[in-house]
Amino acid sequence: MTDLTMRIWRGDENGGELVDYTIESQENEVVLDVIHRLQATQIPDLACRWNCKAGKCGSCSAEINGMPRLMCMTRMDQLPQGPVTITPMRTFPIIRDLVTDVSFNYEMAKRVPAFNPPPMPEGGYRMQQIDVERGQEFRKCIECFMCQNVCHVIRDHEENKVNYAGPRFFIRYAELEMHPLDTNDRRELVREKMGLGLCNITKCCTEVCPEHIKITDNAIIPLKERAVDAHYDPVAWLGRKITGRKKRTADEAAADRP
């Protein structure tokens, strides 16, 4: 059996450092297994979050060799030879070791205006299968927040956190905007206050999503196009100036097309 070098960040809000630990390698392990063995044998005080060990709870997000990944879904034998660096998510404040304070995301979740269906018709609400299917992709999100973590808008520019929902919540806004029973129009909200324009569609969120949600193509870009419909479209703007009409809602605009 060969030895592994695990280079783990140890510290808290007062600072910290990378510390090397050597441990025997074992077959068929994921990074989280090695972390658990280290906790059991050498560093009982190492803090890390985990829960399902099946890539479904979204707790064990960390950065492995510099890339955001789930520790429980990263196989040791697929990492290159040499020391394996494990650091906490960079974008959120540190609590201890590999555990960060992800409450930024909960604040952004609270801001999303809730689903708002029309009054219940007789016989209940009905939705067609094709409309149900459309939002399914977004519901696969496990809230690991790795997309939020990798997004340079807040990862490298702390000040943007004030007004930035981030990719995880852009998919929520997109899902609601594509919901046939929702009556809210959130297009101006995402443009004005949720920082949709800050995203420069460089797709890192899509690259790291463990659920393979096409965040940029299927949620952010559709939202950006909706913001064009609602706000930027120069021809529509000119039309409004000339006719003195107000901006139309998404449904009014869509109803005009065949």
Binding site: T87, R111, V162, R186, K193
Partner: peptide
């Protein structure tokens, strides 16, 4: 729903980051 009706909850800034 008007844009201004949405509560902009507070976000803590400047926490020390790990790594």
């Amino acid at each position: 729903m008007a844009v201004d009706d949405v509560t902009i909850t507070e976000v803590k800034l400047g926490g020390r980051r790990g790594g």
